[in-house]
Design a protein around this nucleic acid. Structure first.
Lengths: 252, 252
DNA sequence: ATCGTTATCCCCATTTCTTGGTATAGCGTC
DNA sequence: GACGCTATACCAAGAAATGGGGATAACGAT
């Protein structure tokens, strides 16, 4: 029974200490569950140094080559859907999670040509700390083992937890802190106001607003307002609710 | 068999449209899985209204009263642990996830006095959009059904997904559609590139990039790049994963 | 065959942002 | 009292975005 296997396998994961061992174990486990391929991707913000990135997979070389050389990561619909789902999703459901462009469909088609048919992807996020996905995939002529997706999701979660442990990420990085005024200015800019408009709204000089934004950018070590807004939003300093709700009525 | 039950129950969740129906269903399901209590908490940032907060539970009145009146949410070790775990965790494992203070232990003890013994909590996050937890708990004299925690985690995830659907609702059509090129330009701008830099990256003229962005703004009926980025991100056209490197550019 | 969409390119005028400075004042801490 | 942080305000130069005009070509669908 697959669920029991997943449980036992999960227990064995706790002894794993290197990425290579993890990869081997995952390759075995994914096939045992009825999949042809797996891919684990983890991005964690570690203490002071750079961020940790881990990518383990047994995708066909062809696909990996196409994916990296054509910079497909930037247009991967699977990755975008990961920001919309609490739990694992089969790729046929992506269209329900996000709007699919023609290019998106084409990308999935190219994947099929390279040996990646249908897939099941598990997204996991720790705000401001880590983001990971685990994908199980089957060859184009085969179908997903729907009965065992629960076991697969469990296993994927454990794999990501293990990967997080391996990547040596225990301490959270200190988030940049903005002053109240800085955040306030940032929020109005995120709402689409210019610095001058924000100044009127807050009842201060436009130069001051510019100064606050300047300081905020310095703290986040970015050099444009777009990056500042997205970084602050990623860290939870501002949210879509803050940005959209003030508009009074529904955007859609 | 519990896993099959969880699957069937999960399917039934998709028809639920109100929080009350969800609560009734979850009460039944949690008991069927061998738990005494459940609690679902969801903070979602939707376009409708303000931020949505949903709290469904069948905890003893006493505990609910203590929890809210003493504002324990701010110092709840379970909540803190939720920021550290990719998957569900039993409360006995909290100490491995976060440092436990005396006050933390005391809080769990108070919970026991109110009828909440051991628990299993499932944390789920969608950066910038939603944060939710689902907890299964048993009475102080009973122990968690460890064999069915996999089914429980699956069920909890579906419940959170359902809650998100209920709170956000309204996913009609009318999503502005961007062409692939427009989206591509938008993505690079969201990554902090200027139009000129984007032009070099894409191998086209800067004027063309500006034109694509112009068209994209018109389709979304906004007049600045900030609003365009946020709107596109809200719709899932681009995601945090797309923005924060996967190409070697590190956000510190 | 025409229409709509997409992608590409160009010009111009104006506004806004970004970066580099400087400066005063209040507030709390050591 | 000195120090650090915050909020406020100003100046100047250059880079970038925005909004208003254009145009050509390829492609697919009606």
């Amino acid at each position: 029974m697959r669920v029991r296997f997943a449980q036992e396998f999960g227990a064995s994961l706790f002894d794993i200490e290197t990425a290579n061992d993890l990869k081997d174990a995952l390759k075995q486990a994914s096939q045992r569950l009825g999949f042809d391929h797996f891919a684990l991707s983890l991005e964690a913000r570690t203490s002071d140094d750079a961020d940790t990135q881990m990518l383990l997979h047994d995708y066909p070389d062809e696909w990996a080559k196409v994916y990296t050389s054509f910079d497909l990561a930037g247009r991967d619909p699977v990755r975008r859907a990961c920001d919309k789902a609490f739990g694992g999703f089969t790729w046929e459901r992506i269209g329900q999670l996000i709007p699919m462009t023609r290019g998106d469909r084409q990308m999935l088609a190219v994947g099929k040509e390279c040996g990646i048919g249908d897939g099941f992807t598990i997204p996991r996020h720790l705000p401001g700390m880590a983001r990971g996905t685990f994908t199980f995939a089957v060859a184009p002529d085969r179908s997903l083992p729907h009965r065992w997706l629960i076991a697969a999701e469990y296993l994927g979660t454990l794999a990501l937890t293990s990967a997080l442990k391996i990547s040596g990420m225990s301490r959270p990085v200190a988030l940049p802190r903005l002053s109240d005024r800085q955040r306030e200015c940032l929020l109005w800019v995120a709402r689409g106001k210019t610095a001058a408009e924000t100044a009127i709204i807050l009842g201060i000089s436009a130069e001051t607003v510019i100064q606050h934004l300047k300081m905020a950018r310095e703290r986040y070590e970015v050099h444009c307002s777009q990056s500042l807004i997205l970084a602050a939003m990623f860290d939870g300093l501002i949210g879509f609710g803050d940005v959209f709700k003030w508009q009074g009525h529904v955007r859609r």
